[in-house]
């Protein structure tokens, strides 16, 4: 799976939880879930659960601690996929 595919998939996952929809137009690796997309912190759990379901991986607490930007999510997904 390419970087671009993962970023696109993350975008699709976060879209329903994004309160600042215009920020989706500039969506890239540097997009911040809370500061840019204004996803509330309770919905961030839904993002994490959706990522787990989508890739069939488990995001442990240490990884979850760092899930703040698209780049973080991509790095965590790649490392969990590689460890499978």
């Amino acid at each position: 799976m390419t970087d671009k595919e993962i970023v696109e998939k993350i975008k699709k996952i976060v879209t329903p939880y994004t309160q600042n929809k215009p920020a989706l137009e500039n969506f890239d690796e540097n997009t911040d879930f809370i500061n840019d997309l204004k996803i509330n912190s309770a919905n961030l759990v839904d993002v994490i659960l959706d990522v787990e379901d989508e890739y069939n991986i488990e995001i442990d607490n240490d990884s979850m601690n760092e899930m703040l930007t698209v780049k973080d999510a991509k790095r965590i997904i790649e490392s969990k996929l590689a460890a499978r």
């Binding site: 809370i34 912190s41 961030l44 607490n61 979850m64 601690n65 760092e66 899930m67 703040l68």
Partner: peptide
């Protein structure tokens, strides 16, 4: 710095 660790 920011951290997402509610269960802690």
């Amino acid at each position: 710095p920011r951290k997402y660790n509610p269960s802690n």
